[in-house]
Design a protein around this nucleic acid. Structure first.
Lengths: 206, 206
DNA sequence: GCTTGAAAATGAACAATGTTCAAGAAGAAT
DNA sequence: ATTCTTCTTGAACATTGTTCATTTTCAAGC
């Protein structure tokens, strides 16, 4: 017997619209920033009522969180595409790819990291977990480079190093912080990783 | 002759209230987060009308920005208090002090770094400049440690290193990112600085 | 002290925006 | 065809930022 539930026409329509709402919301966040996202704008652009948005996502945070969820998924997919041939090159690649992705989708990343929930409701665990998992992608190459180190310590190191790169990039890409020209930034990140690896006793381009 | 303008009773009252509004706003941000800050709450707590808040600060962003301005001033004051005896110790001290300050005033720091203006109005330049200046506080000790390096490069390095520390701390203190226990964090930051200095060819505790 | 003019304070009204829900429409099940 | 369930709608409501005509305050001049 077939456990796969057939998708009724009703569900098809529902899903189509769900995707459409997300696409529109993502577009607005990406181009005009999270603060410019308005329920009515989304509903009108999607050709439905505001009620339908609520019906589909519970509340407006639900829309934002779904966009954020997809952002971290896309980020993870990109980071997983970094070649794992050479561990040093992989670390450089992860940093450079994060920079690329952040530069391409700055407002989406800011939505992911800066959005706060109403009241004191907790941020969804699955998203946090996905961010943590993304930041743990430096773990495997670090294990290869430091075979004698404690695994727990490498896990901490991975998050720390990725957080550091995140700080450099997220502040560096604030167009408002005029200081770091985006051209320099890539070079700056590269040198940062370089120096830190040297501090760990790892030779460049093994 | 005396250029100092006497402060009339009227101005005294105005100033007192201005300070009171700021204190209340800061308290709300610090304890319940920026998203919980409401004009009416502030006005009621300050015993005045909403109009007076607008009269004093132009718009609500004006209140937030003034609080943020004072936050970065307080941060800078704290960072300037780090002893400059030994340059390596000073770098550790700057990182550790930033961590302390961030831990004590997490919501205020988040307000400083995460607040976005309405529409596309630019963030006030003086605040950005003050943040930049704070992040440049690693410059003097780095100059002492790397006397042969190009000054522009040291300036970049200072911002990069401080941004990295900022990333580690701001993500590490997200209680939602369960991963890094706050106890570990100080140690983690310390080791990070340690490793990076080693990578720069600087010996610990010269 | 009274008058007067400027500055400030007020808070009701307005505007923008998130949220709810009773009524109706659409589709599935029998 | 009828009924039953589910989804959709959008007007009404709630919250919150913003404005502004009116009133109040108060310092200066007489």
């Amino acid at each position: 017997m077939n456990n796969v539930q057939e998708e009724s026409p009703r569900d098809q329509k529902k899903n189509r619209r769900r995707l459409q709402i997300l696409e529109i919301a993502r577009g607005i966040i990406a181009t005009k920033g999270l603060r410019s996202l308005k329920v009515r704008d989304v509903a009108e652009a999607a050709g439905c009522s505001v009620g339908s948005v609520y019906n589909e996502f519970g509340d407006f945070d639900g829309v934002i969180l779904t966009v954020n969820r997809e952002t971290v998924q896309a980020l993870t997919a990109r980071l997983r595409g970094v070649p794992a041939d050479d561990p040093v090159r992989q670390l450089y690649g992860l940093a450079a790819t994060y920079l690329e992705f952040f530069a391409e989708h700055a407002n989406l990343l800011r939505s992911l990291f800066e959005h706060r929930m109403e009241d004191d409701r907790p941020y969804p665990d699955d998203i946090l977990q996905m961010v943590m998992d993304a930041f743990a992608l430096m773990h495997p190459p670090l294990v290869r480079l430091l075979p004698d180190a404690d695994d727990v310590k490498i896990a901490l190191l991975s998050r720390t190093l990725f957080s550091a790169v995140h700080g450099i990039i997220s502040l560096g890409l604030e167009e408002r912080m005029v200081a770091v020209p985006p051209q320099m930034l890539r070079q700056q990140v590269e040198q940062f990783v370089d120096t830190h690896l040297a501090g760990l006793g790892i030779l460049p381009l093994s």
